[in-house]
């Protein structure tokens, strides 16, 4: 009985440790993805891409139409 429980505890401690390692690893990966995301989605890049690739532009004040409830 004691032997069985001790063994069980050891197995689960090992599992816990493995999960902790995995979480640390995922955290690292998250940080790298975060950087990648902020590089690709940086506002200056979005703006130049929108203007160059999609020919978008900021509307003049006369071009803005207000939509309101009746």
């Amino acid at each position: 009985m004691v032997v069985h429980v001790t063994h069980q505890v050891r197995k689960e401690t090992d599992q816990l440790e493995g999960l902790r390692r995995e979480s640390a690893h995922l955290q690292v990966e998250w940080g790298q993805f975060l950087l990648e995301q902020s590089t690709w989605a940086s506002y200056s890049r979005v703006r130049t891409e929108a203007e160059r690739e999609l020919q978008m532009q900021v509307p003049e004040s006369g071009q803005i139409i207000f939509v309101g409830k009746e």
């Binding site: 004040s61 803005i64 139409i65 207000f66 939509v67 309101g68 009746e70």
Partner: peptide
């Protein structure tokens, strides 16, 4: 504009039905 402040001059208004 980025702070979503409505423009002061309101040249055109479009009304919509409920």
């Amino acid at each position: 504009r980025l702070l979503q402040e409505p423009p002061h001059s309101k040249p055109v208004r479009l009304s919509v039905s409920p």
